[in-house]
């Protein structure tokens, strides 16, 4: 009996240490902000690196890689603005912000002003318009 006492004491001291290595998990549903990243031809920006920072924060709250569909699932823990940086090794990527409200739902994000196809039309029109103006300027300059 007396011999067993030190062993029992040693085991009881060791239990918390052993528990610290016992990784457990829970599964719950939650509201996530899902960002999908894709190229103009709809190819997913899959398995690429991303970082999420709180507004003006220097340390990321989440880092990882996009999934096979190019998605990032983010569960913000408070209302505020978040900065998302994504990058691939060949230099593609984005650096944009989104805002979540008090219920951690999405309430706003940076959006390109024009859609892809509209951009082409607007861009070509702008270029031709600018050169048209330049043409008028050159004519005026050459007029005696």
């Amino acid at each position: 009996m007396m011999r067993a006492l030190p062993l029992a004491l040693l085991l009881s001291v060791g239990v918390p240490t052993a528990q610290a290595h016992d990784l457990q998990y829970t599964v719950t549903g939650g509201q996530a902000v899902v960002v999908r990243l894709f190229y103009p031809d709809n190819t997913a920006f899959s398995f690429e690196s991303y970082e999420i920072y709180p507004r003006d924060g220097k340390l990321p709250v989440q880092v990882g890689r996009t999934d096979a569909h190019g998605r990032i699932a983010f569960l913000p823990d408070r209302a505020g603005q978040w900065r998302i940086r994504t990058f691939s090794a060949d230099g593609h990527g984005l650096d944009f912000r989104l805002t979540t409200d008090a219920t951690a739902g999405l309430s706003g994000s940076d959006k390109p002003f024009y859609e892809r196809h509209a951009r082409i039309v607007v861009g070509v029109a702008l270029i031709l318009g600018l050169f048209g103006l330049l043409n008028l300027y050159i004519r005026k300059r050459k007029r005696p």
């Binding site: 031809d41 190819t43 060949d90 951009r119 082409i120 861009g123």
Partner: peptide, 18 residues
């Protein structure tokens, strides 16, 4: 204008990039 349009047309490449 041609250069602008060409730059806007992304071509998919092997490896999931454009």
């Amino acid at each position: 204008a041609l250069s602008f349009v060409l730059m806007m047309v992304a071509l998919p490449l092997p490896g999931g990039t454009t």
